[in-house]
Design a protein around this nucleic acid. Structure first.
Lengths: 188, 188
DNA sequence: ATGATAATATACCGATCGGTATATTTTGTC
DNA sequence: GACAAAATATACCGATCGGTATATTATCAT
């Protein structure tokens, strides 16, 4: 079963560097030092390999975000925990996060986008739930949970983008600033 | 010269729907009803076609954003103008904006990302300049222009993403809400 | 030790990839 | 109308694509 994991690792590295479409199965197997039938022994197809990869990798992200996204009345605290979780994953599993980001913004009819959609949907729903629950305490949030979830994820991903381009370090200060601006605006 | 424009149109439609890598030149020329040598008469290569396409399309976006990004002391007003400009383009040139978004988040070593980078860099710089000039009036903004520019673009693109998924209409109200939250936070 | 099964390799498939050599047609100029 | 140049087509190139038929080697339970 070791080759199976190595194939997933190889696919992750290559997909995140150059993209799903631009990487051939030949390259994936050569990086591991095996041949194509080995890959097709473990996976039905290139797409099946991608699905298995997303399954394996998104698990970590989901558990971390789910742990962080418990709301007990303090929205700022909850959002800080969520942003911290995202930053942690972007650092710890940077190859995967890069790839997820790429596939999320891939064209709707591309294989990459279709493969990632269920996982990103799940992640968005977790965030939306936080804002829905928070709206029970803060009525003026009501009905805007989609926009808030998308907006927070937008700044989080933009910030992670800066980190990926070495323009930023993802430290506690940035967590505070991102959440604080989201909650209280730019001047605070 | 009509075929040249039609080829660019065809490439734009296909690239934005399924992605640069997944679309072959064969498909592009067939959609126009010509043959490959016609394409290679006007462009050096598939990559050259992409470059010409980005050149043609990004012009419109840049002029609109540049017009909107004049700062005369009222940051809220300027940001509203910028956001309005982005929303207008996302609606008027949706295929191109989809494609630009895709390529911006494509892997750094992919052709798509390398081709789009100069244009998105230009756009980011316009936004950064606004925050730099605004910092002359509001000292507490100083030194954070990169993060602010990235953050605003992040929420703008996240909002446009909702629009692309039919979860939102890009009207005046959303312009106001996006800028207002950016400036004053979530509770306002 | 044997027999079944899982894991891997060799060598190939047809299709498509980006790109082009060559020939023909269209266009505009004198 | 002749001629050059631009525009387009036919027919092809080698390389790579995702995928597989078949054979061989490891693994492991009996």
């Amino acid at each position: 079963m070791d080759n199976r994991q190595q194939l997933l690792d190889s696919a992750l590295a290559l997909f995140s560097q150059r993209g799903y479409d631009a990487v051939g199965v030949r390259e994936i197997v050569e990086a591991v030092g095996v041949t194509k039938p080995t890959l097709y022994h473990y996976f039905d197809s290139k797409r099946g390999l991608l699905d298995a990869l997303l399954q394996r990798e998104s698990g970590h992200l989901l558990t971390e975000v789910l742990q962080a996204a418990v709301y007990h009345g303090d929205l700022v605290l909850t959002l800080e925990n969520i942003v911290r979780a995202y930053f942690r994953i972007a650092q710890k599993a940077s190859a995967y996060y890069r790839m997820q980001l790429t596939m999320y913004f891939s064209p709707p009819e591309s294989e990459g986008n279709q493969a990632i959609r269920p996982f990103t949907t799940q992640q968005r729903e977790i965030l939306e739930d936080v804002f829905i629950r928070a709206a029970e305490d803060h009525g003026n949030l009501r009905g805007r949970h989609s926009r808030y979830a998308a907006g927070l994820l937008g700044v989080v991903n933009a910030t992670i983008g800066l980190y990926f381009n070495d323009a930023l370090a993802l430290n506690e200060e940035i967590v505070y600033q991102v959440v604080h601006q989201f909650m209280y605006g730019i001047f605070s």
